[in-house]
């Protein structure tokens, strides 16, 4: 990345903006995101939990280290913090 430019990324919670604007809609969106992220991050040994009653997501490593995030775009930073790696969807899934 160029030293002059900021890291790419969104300034808005665009995932939430695409979900229904109701409490139930937001809860469902969060639960679904946790399930999908757990599938995607399983090869890195990570699990994402959405605890009932909380609007955050907990990203956990196999050793129990946990990073709590509130938005989809924070997931990638949490993955990097826990594993030092990032996900490239163009790489074949193991």
């Amino acid at each position: 990345m160029c030293a002059q430019c900021r890291a790419p990324g969104s300034r808005i919670d665009w995932y939430a903006a695409g979900a229904p604007d109701t409490l139930a809609g937001r809860r469902t969106a969060r639960t679904e995101l946790a399930a999908v992220a757990t599938r995607q991050l399983a090869p890195l040994g990570l699990r994402v939990d959405a605890h009932p009653g909380s609007m955050t997501l907990a990203v956990r490593s196999a050793t129990g280290r946990t990073v709590v995030v509130t938005r989809l775009d924070e997931l990638a930073d949490a993955v990097r913090a826990l594993t030092g790696r990032s996900v490239d969807p163009l790489e074949p899934r193991r």
Partner: peptide, 30 residues
Amino acid sequence: WAEYALWLDTMCRAHPDRLLRSKGIVPTRD
């Protein structure tokens, strides 16, 4: 929406200089 959004987010992060643009309709359940 969760699957598409997570895929788009990771694509945009992994390849910001290569995925120049995406634009269109996602027919979600909602």
